[in-house]
């Protein structure tokens, strides 16, 4: 059975799972941000949150202090996280450019108005 770890949270070391929970919360918040914000920039922020949520998982899986077996990703985890950060930066730049372009063309940042591709 699943033991609720809350009781020992402060005096026992935390594990991968706890990181994953934080990651999951950020991921879900990000996804919801994307799904509910009408402002394109809000959507972008959601993406950042999602990427960060994923990053937390990579770091947690890469860390060898958080689990009691040796199956960590090791440095690979951190390296992937680094790449994610860099790609996030690139993505942000391009996305921002798209948003600005959209803003110039439509005079709006409302993603609901970007429906030209609908079937």
């Amino acid at each position: 059975m699943l033991q609720l770890p809350l009781a020992h949270l402060l005096n026992e070391p935390i594990g991968v799972a706890h990181f994953m929970v934080v990651g999951a919360v950020m991921f879900v918040c990000g996804a919801l941000c994307m799904a509910t914000k009408r402002n394109a920039l809000g959507v972008l922020m959601g993406i950042e949150l999602v990427l960060n949520g994923a990053n937390i998982n990579f770091i947690a899986f890469g860390s060898k202090y958080l689990r009691n077996d040796a199956n960590t990703l090791g440095l690979d985890g951190q390296l992937i996280a680094l790449f994610v950060i860099v790609l996030a930066a690139a993505e942000a730049a391009v996305a921002l450019a798209i948003v600005l372009n959209f803003y110039n063309n439509h005079d709006s940042v409302d993603v609901d108005r970007a429906k030209q591709l609908q079937g």
Binding site: A31, A35, V43, V111, D112, A114, K115, Q116, Q118, G119
Partner: peptide, 18 residues
């Protein structure tokens, strides 16, 4: 038939993904 699925709304796509 399929194109009806393409609502064009970014936010709905994200919900689809989730």
């Amino acid at each position: 038939m399929l194109k009806k699925l393409q609502t064009g709304s970014l936010r709905q796509y994200i919900l689809f993904i989730v």
